[in-house]
Structure formats: structure tokens, C-alpha cells
């Protein structure tokens, strides 16, 4: 049996009285696009934070490519091949789009202790950064300051930075958040393309997107996974309909 790209074992995270992650056991198989859905405040971002290492769980284990990463700092997990994007855009706003992505490329390529040769004159790194921008459709905007980018473009850049680190596992926290319909459509197309090459854990509220993209879906409610299965299974699951989908369709 191949090792999972990601596995959590009875993961628990409490914030005071709130149990934001409640005995979560989840596996993401290599090559899979696993969607994580759940209502607002269900604990999706909290789970991503623990996987990435920004939050430390109170109990349980996280295994990345078969290796426990509990206690390992954020940057080491990134080095192991974990790439992530944020629900609320996290970019270097004073930088150009290209420099943001270059930062990601260099994180993978190394040589960051060099302090003499200009970063922009490392043609191989710059070429890779441009390729990542092209991949998300931002090639034309390489030299634009982040502050000058539209919201949708910033969301694309968010993904390009993660891709630049050549991750083996991508955690995407609501990539469609705040996008117009047109932008969202383009993003879904992009994700469908990425799906061929990357293992992904996708947190998303947009059900249409989830149901067209996902291989498997896990449903998180009040910190607990109430169901995991294929799209068809999840659609048919009575608990899910009651807890989550029902309220969506009613709205």
C-alpha cells in the first residue's frame, strides 16, 4: 500500500471552550483532490493551520508523506513539500507579482544565503517564477505591484506562489473567496488543470466547484468530520443534507 500524502489521526484543537478540531482523522491519497466542506466556523481553516504548522494541536498526529510532523516548524513542513494558500490573501504587498513568486521559487531552489548577486539576475529562478505566473494566467502582470492587482488577480498570485515551491501537497483555503462569477470560473478551470499534477486538499464553500473538482469530499461540522466519501455518496448522505447541504439549498 502506498503511503498517504497526508494523514491526521484523532486531531484535537481547542480554543478555550470551543473545540475547533474534534477527533479529526482524515487521509489524502497521492494524486487525489480531496475537498473539505463545512459551514462557517466549522474549523476548516483551523485544521489547515495545524497541518501547515501555524497552530499546534492539543492531541493527535499529523503525518506528511508517512512522516509525523508534530512539533516541526512551518518552514520545515514547507520544505517537505507542503504548499498552502490562505483564505485571506497573504502576499508581500510592496513587491511586484514576480518578486512574490520568485520568493517561492527560491524557497525550493535554495541559495538564499547569497548576498552579492542580484536575485533578479538568477535567470533560471526568474524563468521558473514567470512560468508559475503564466500557469495561473498572470504572466502579463509580472511587474505590477501587488497593491495594483485586482482582488481576483491577487487570488491567482496566491496560488502561483504556492506552485512556485513545487509542492507535493497543496492545501487551498477557499481559493474562490470573494471572486466574481467570471473570476471564479477561470479559477475552477485553473484548479482542474492543476488537479492532473498535484495532490490537493481543497477547502471551499462553492458547492458547484467542489462537486465538479473533487475525487472525495469530507464534511466538517462543529470540528467533527461527519462524513467522507465520493461526490455521489456525499450528495446522497442524509446527515450531510441535514447538517449542511439542506441549509444551502434552502437558502
Amino acid at each position: 500500500m502506498t503511503t498517504s500524502a497526508l494523514e491526521t489521526v484523532r486531531l484535537v484543537k481547542r480554543f478555550g471552550g470551543v473545540t475547533a478540531t474534534d477527533q479529526v482523522s482524515l487521509t489524502v491519497a497521492p494524486g487525489e483532490l480531496h475537498a473539505l466542506i463545512g459551514p462557517n466556523g466549522a474549523g476548516k481553516s483551523t485544521l489547515i493551520g495545524q497541518l501547515a504548522g501555524e497552530l499546534s494541536p492539543d492531541a493527535g498526529d499529523i503525518r506528511l508523506f508517512g512522516q509525523s510532523v508534530i512539533g516541526r516548524p512551518v518552514h520545515e513542513r514547507a520544505r517537505l513539500g507542503l504548499g498552502r494558500t490562505y483564505q485571506i490573501t497573504q502576499l508581500a504587498r510592496e513587491f511586484t507579482a514576480l518578486d512574490n513568486v520568485l520568493l517561492g521559487v527560491n524557497a525550493r531552489r535554495g541559495g538564499n544565503t547569497r548576498f552579492w548577486g542580484p536575485a533578479r539576475q538568477d535567470l533560471e529562478s526568474v524563468a521558473r517564477a514567470r512560468a508559475a505566473l503564466d500557469q495561473v494566467g498572470l504572466g502579463e502582470r509580472a511587474e505590477a505591484q501587488v497593491a495594483a492587482l485586482a482582488h481576483g488577480e491577487q487570488r491567482q498570485l496566491e496560488i502561483a506562489m504556492a506552485l512556485a515551491t513545487e509542492p507535493r501537497l497543496l492545501l487551498l483555503d477557499e481559493p474562490l473567496a470573494g471572486m466574481s462569477q467570471g473570476e471564479a470560473q477561470a479559477m475552477v478551470t485553473l484548479l482542474r488543470g492543476l488537479k492532473k499534477h498535484y495532490t490537493m486538499l481543497l477547502v471551499e464553500h462553492d458547492m458547484d466547484a467542489v462537486f465538479t473538482l473533487a475525487d472525495r469530499v469530507s464534511v466538517l461540522v462543529y470540528g467533527r468530520i461527519i462524513a467522507t466519501g465520493t461526490v455521489a455518496e456525499i450528495r446522497a448522505n442524509a446527515d450531510v443534507r441535514a447538517a449542511y447541504l439542506g441549509e444551502e439549498t434552502a437558502a
Binding site: A52, E54, P73, V74, H75, A78, R79, R84, Y86, Q90, L91, A92, R93, E94, F95, L103, G104, A107, R108, N112, M161, A162, A164, T165
Partner: peptide, 13 residues
């Protein structure tokens, strides 16, 4: 500019 993101990319800030 963004220490959190820089770390998440894999840089030991």
C-alpha cells in the same frame, strides 16, 4: 512585508 507567508513558503525567517 509578510513574515507569515515567507515562513509558509519554506524560508527560515
Amino acid at each position: 512585508a509578510n513574515a507569515r507567508r515567507t515562513l509558509a513558503l519554506g524560508h527560515p525567517v
